[in-house]
Nucleic acid binder design. Structure first.
Lengths: 243, 243
DNA sequence: TCCAGCATTGTGTGATCACACTTTTTATGG
DNA sequence: CCATAAAAAGTGTGATCACACAATGCTGGA
């Protein structure tokens, strides 16, 4: 079970050195990709056999995700996938509406022409994906677009907060990806943001982003029933062994 | 070493059930109380013997604090007390200036008369402590004042973010407690906040808080040399065994 | 006196086990 | 047939160990 460490080459996806890291990353991506249903119990030992490792790295990863609010811990200690209530979702939107525009303002003076071109490309990808009615690609392009900006602002603390928010946001948006396709104010706002960034207008870019977040949050607050079973979660089967 | 669990009574400070929790809390308070110097290495085993427990709970607690950004992890895996650089401190202030006013706005309609009276008392404590030139008491009263508000807004995600920020802020303010005594715009701002809260004016309260944060951050940015050894840290001796 | 080399110690990682507790299942009684 | 109790899995916690690696110290030579 130490192959991953003794054989650093290969394995395109989980290059993380320690088993802790690999277990964490696998669970994390499974989570944002909606592999688990809200309310699912993730027991240390079951996840461990699914991942093909011992209980120790899984315990670490589960607890880490709990600290990041990506999982909840029952009084008994068992980790469960959080069931986002409506107030919690509203809170999430309110925090995002403060932090992400801040990151946008901080990033504005640091965006190089190369990065601006990259943003342009992500916007094009979004539009194409939308024309093909491919909601997964739309979500992916949007995420790429915004995180190019968030990473450019070189604020590690802020970046981790935002990633933690997206970790919780992930499953909800994933579940609502078809509804979001019909909403689609994102394209407009991203165009606004990009134009403002090209002019170096931080305040304008931040404002457009804030509007995107509040509008998307408001849209989902009405078009989404909370505390409900999702479409077709895969469960632990989504966790292939660690190699 | 299981006394704490088999003897639930007694032990006024660390009532936490599991050893994980106790280790976490002890390290956490030691951290915010400035027991460690920036750059100190906290090895799992050394902390374990200082705490009188095995390595397991300490490992958990250390990793948890690292996720909360209260500690850094070296490439080797050793935990060290972060050395706050000037840009990092500025970033910290910028995030606080967004999130804490948000919490203030959310809390305003939920503040009961009892809570407002409690705020009044904390303000009085601040003023008294200031007259005695007791910087520790001043810091404590300020923290109490603000966290009464932050807890009242019933936003668990937001509260955890703010606590994480204060965890990082703690050592710096502790080190600068004497300088802060001479600054002291806090009293004024807290009075403003309290008056606004009594009128239910959320925007005004949030604005006053934002000014307090930005002014304190600006003050410390000039009156503090960064990446420097502190006064008299206690080190591991501050960690009394777990009972 | 200084530096190279090695031995010693200290380190985090991860596996495994015993224990106490909880949840589920099964059997037993009404 | 159902409710209740007993038994059986399943669970997290925490201690302990082996291992690989890093840092530290010491000893030997120049």
């Amino acid at each position: 079970m130490l192959d991953a460490r003794t054989d650093p080459a290969e394995a395109g996806e989980p290059p993380g050195g320690t088993l802790d890291e690999q277990a964490y990353r696998r669970l994390r991506t499974a989570l944002v990709e909606g592999a688990f249903a809200p309310g699912d119990r993730l027991s240390i030992r079951r996840v461990a056999v699914a991942l093909g490792v011992s209980a120790m790295p899984v315990r670490t990863a589960l607890r880490r995700l709990a600290v990041e609010q990506a999982l909840d811990i029952l009084p008994s200690g068992t980790a469960i996938v959080p069931r986002l209530t409506q107030p919690a979702f509203a809170e999430l939107g309110a925090i995002r509406a403060e932090l992400e525009p801040l990151a946008m303002r901080m990033a504005t003076p640091k965006l190089t022409p190369a990065l601006l071109d990259a943003l342009d490309q992500r916007l094009a990808e979004h539009i194409q994906a939308r024309e093909r009615s491919d909601p997964e690609a739309v979500l992916k392009a949007d995420r790429s677009f915004l995180f190019i900006v968030y990473q450019a602002c070189e604020a590690p603390m802020l970046l981790q907060f935002i990633e933690s928010l997206w970790l919780r946001r992930g499953p909800v948006f994933w579940e609502a990806r078809w509804s979001l396709l019909s909403h689609g104010g994102v394209r407009h706002h991203h165009r606004e943001i990009l134009a403002a960034l090209r002019h170096g207008d931080a305040a304008e870019a931040a404002l457009a982003l804030r509007q995107e977040i509040t509008s998307a949050t408001a849209f989902l607050m009405t078009h989404l029933q909370f505390a409900n079973g999702p479409s077709t979660p895969m469960g632990l089967a989504a966790l292939a062994p660690v190699r």
